[in-house]
Computed example of a mutant assay.
Amino acid sequence: MNRLLIALLLATSAFYQPALHAQSAQASLKAALLYRFVQYSEWSVNPPAQQVYCVAGDIEVFNALTAMLPEQAKTVLLKNADQATECTVLFLSLELASQAGWSPLLQPSGRLTVVEGAELFRQGAMFGLIAEPQRISFRVNLTLARQNGFHLSAQMLKLAKEIH
């Protein structure tokens, strides 16, 4: 009986592992994009002494970002919008688009904003991640970024799917 149970558990985990791997790979890609957006952006007004990366709505992106950043970098997993006061970089997941209270964080504040999905992007984010089959692309609201005092690298803008 124990052998049958172990065999069943192994077969089940092998069945679900590719889906878990794809999900974690996607989270790692989102975290890497977030990190690169910061590296290729300049705060022209009041640059922060230390970046505070805040992630809301996606624990996997938070974990991937925390693992990727140097030890001295600060990451915060936001449970509610009121916790975002110290954030210099903000990532909002697709699930938060329909929840009240998160979109005001996209208003001009001196923080770099990255979101998933078109709805939050239209509400005032600087970067929008677009999930496509086998990849993630991004769009940039260059006008908004400039209005908020950011200078974005030309190399990064070349890679954007859309620039507004």
Rank of each mutant, 00 (worst) to 15 (best):
H151Q: 09
Q147R: 01
N148R: 05
F127G: 06
Q134N: 15
V140L: 03
L90K: 04
A97I: 08
Q83P: 06
E71M: 12
L9V: 09
L152G: 02
A81E: 12
V38W: 02
R135H: 12
Q134K: 15
L112T: 03
L20H: 13
L90G: 01
N46S: 13
N148H: 08
L78M: 04
H21R: 14
Q23E: 14
T75S: 15
L144H: 05
N46L: 12
G124W: 13
N46C: 08
E116P: 10
S44D: 13
R135Y: 01
H164G: 01
Q23V: 07
A14N: 00
I136H: 01
F121N: 14
E86A: 06
R135I: 05
F127A: 07
S24H: 10
A100V: 10
A100S: 13
Q155D: 12
K30N: 03
I59L: 13
V140P: 03
L77P: 04
A32P: 02
A118R: 13
S137C: 02
S103M: 12
M1S: 10
F62S: 13
G128T: 10
R139I: 01
Q134H: 13
Q23I: 07
R122M: 15
L90S: 03
Y16C: 07
A11R: 00
V38P: 05
E119A: 15
L20E: 07
V61L: 03
Q23H: 11
